[in-house]
């Protein structure tokens, strides 16, 4: 499975190697397609590839760390 996400990092996590830790912890392949990082926020367009369960656990873990994880479409509830 491949899923596309937008990750938003709060200031406190901008300097943390979140993706490195993610790939050590879960059996997924990450592929950064776009990024915009400043001192107060990080924004990442990311593809995550792996088994559905691994992707789901990756998303849950990222959220536990304080990263906002959304589909690439962001808010689709209008």
């Amino acid at each position: 499975m491949r899923e596309k996400f937008y990750l938003t990092y709060p200031p406190v996590l901008v300097k943390e190697p979140i993706l490195y830790l993610l790939t050590k912890k879960f059996n997924v392949v990450t592929n950064i397609r776009g990024a915009n990082v400043s001192h107060d926020m990080g924004l990442l367009a990311l593809e995550i590839e792996g088994a559905q369960e691994e992707i789901d656990q990756s998303v849950s873990w990222l959220r536990e760390q304080g990263v906002t994880v959304e589909p690439i479409e962001k808010n689709v509830i209008e």
């Binding site: 899923e3 998303v59 959220r63 906002t68 994880v69 959304e70 589909p71 690439i72 479409e73 962001k74 808010n75 689709v76 509830i77 209008e78």
Partner: peptide, 21 residues
Amino acid sequence: YDDVNRLCSEIADKYGWAFVN
């Protein structure tokens, strides 16, 4: 809301419906 957003994106992808937005 994050879960709902993600599920809708997945459904749009899987079912081949016209998800207008």
